[in-house]
């Protein structure tokens, strides 16, 4: 009984993870500029990879394989943002200007204007 439930949960996680991976990749092609593409790629890196590896972890039960999958997940979790940040910072310093709807970089941080209507 429980085995069947785990099987179903793992299947559902793998399928949803695959869907999010494809969505992230579609965003990678569709988005208009570099910085927005990084946002799309991070969907693949976090939710897509997380659900897919989580589903595989459920399938393999309690074993060394699960531990390795968990390590892989931790690697994505801790090193993914480092790579994204390095990429964005390098691009900004290289003078690649982002397409912006609104630039709030020169606002006074903490001056209380954050509570305005959205």
């Amino acid at each position: 009984m429980i085995a069947i439930l785990i099987e179903w949960a793992s299947g559902a996680m793998i399928i949803t993870g695959s869907i999010f991976i494809v969505i992230g990749a579609i965003g990678l092609v569709r988005m208009p500029d570099l910085y927005t593409r990084i946002h799309a790629a991070s969907v693949t890196d976090t939710l897509g990879a997380g659900l897919l590896l989580g589903g595989l972890m459920l399938q393999s039960g309690l074993s060394l394989v699960t531990l390795k999958l968990a390590f892989l997940l931790g690697l994505f979790f801790f090193m993914g943002p480092v790579a994204s940040h390095a990429l964005a910072q390098a691009a900004l310093q290289e003078g690649i200007e982002p397409l912006l709807r609104e630039d709030r970089r020169h606002r006074e941080a903490g001056s209380g204007e954050s509570g305005e209507a959205r």
């Binding site: 991976i21 092609v29 570099l34 790579a83 990429l87």
Partner: peptide, 28 residues
């Protein structure tokens, strides 16, 4: 799709991003 982005570019950083994504997807 990631390879399409790597081929289209246009900047070198887009290609690095696509390369990073290809790496992630290869692991998966």
């Amino acid at each position: 799709l990631a390879v399409i982005r790597a081929v289209r570019g246009p900047t070198v950083f887009d290609r690095v991003l696509a390369g990073n994504s290809v790496g992630t997807l290869a692991i998966l």
